[in-house]
């Protein structure tokens, strides 16, 4: 019998840092902070400001990938977001995995920054259940050059609360980017999903075929201009037009 159960340390903060030799400062620093700001659990994040640990991580990332590959950076929640040149997409992943200690693949996904069209056209009256999004095209943290972006998150199983989100712009006419499959094998399915949902083509992927949808499916569902036909045809069946929805008159809403 070779059961060798290992019991980790109790309590957050007292993390047994498995890889503290290779990756020193950020993990421990993050840990102490997490204990320290326990009481002020949720704080409003100032997007513009990079905290010390984010700045340190960004500096090390820039050092590995090269300063000309990094376009812009920002913070989403507690996560560092870096927008990089599409040409450096794979080399950045390789640096993350081998040099920076991000051994864990979170996800690979896409974004379409086109404004959400109102269901049934702009002057739709039937469907009032869907939220109204702004009509102008704005971009999120770390910006974007155009409509399509691919973004991916990698993390670490060895250091607590240590992750980074990478973004890269794609051309709208020909959304091509290199595949992460050779670096993170788990990117296989994520990239297939992304291709199916957005039509992004991952060069070097072994078999880019349908993952979720039937083979005869047409269109890319997560693109903003893909309509939900059920919403076009009929209004939300749950809407009973007895009285106005609360707060329709006063936009601000009451506290």
């Amino acid at each position: 019998m070779k059961t060798r159960p290992i019991v980790g340390r109790a309590k957050a903060g007292n993390r047994s840092s498995l890889a503290s030799d290779e990756i020193t400062s950020p993990g421990d620093a993050v840990d102490q902070d997490s204990v320290a700001d326990q009481d002020s659990a949720v704080v409003t994040i100032d997007v513009a400001e990079l905290s010390a640990e984010h700045a340190d991580l960004l500096a090390r990332f820039t050092g590995e990938v090269g300063a000309d590959a990094v376009i812009e950076s920002g913070v989403a929640g507690r996560e560092l977001v870096v927008r990089i040149e599409p040409a450096a997409w794979v080399s950045a992943a390789l640096a993350c995995k081998t040099k920076l200690g991000f051994d864990y693949l979170g996800f690979v996904a896409g974004i379409d920054w086109l404004p959400t069209p109102a269901a049934g056209g702009d002057d739709a009256e039937g469907d009032t259940s869907a939220p109204v999004q702004p009509k102008d095209m704005t971009f999120g943290v770390a910006g974007s050059a155009g409509r399509f972006q691919v973004f991916a998150r990698v993390g670490s199983t060895k250091v607590a609360r240590y992750g980074i989100t990478l973004k890269a712009d794609l051309k709208e006419s020909a959304p091509h980017i290199d595949s992460w499959f050779s670096v993170y094998p788990g990117a296989d399915w994520h990239e297939r999903e992304c291709w199916e949902m957005y039509g992004f083509i991952f060069d070097g992927h072994p078999s880019l075929r349908h993952l979720y949808l039937p083979h005869e499916f047409e269109g890319f569902p997560l693109r903003k201009d893909f309509p939900l036909l059920a919403r076009e045809v009929k209004p939300w069946p749950g809407l009973v037009n007895v009285e106005a929805m609360p707060g329709v008159d006063d936009e601000e809403g009451g506290d």
């Binding site: 290992i6 980790g8 060895k158």
Partner: peptide, 28 residues
């Protein structure tokens, strides 16, 4: 054998650090 649990190592969404508990791992 990876000693990694987001309840302890992730963002402190819930008060897991206020109680005494263990993360179980197995080597096989």
């Amino acid at each position: 054998g990876v000693d990694w649990d987001l309840r302890r190592d992730g963002e402190p969404l819930l008060p897991y650090n206020e109680i005494d508990w263990k993360v179980w791992t197995h080597q096989d």
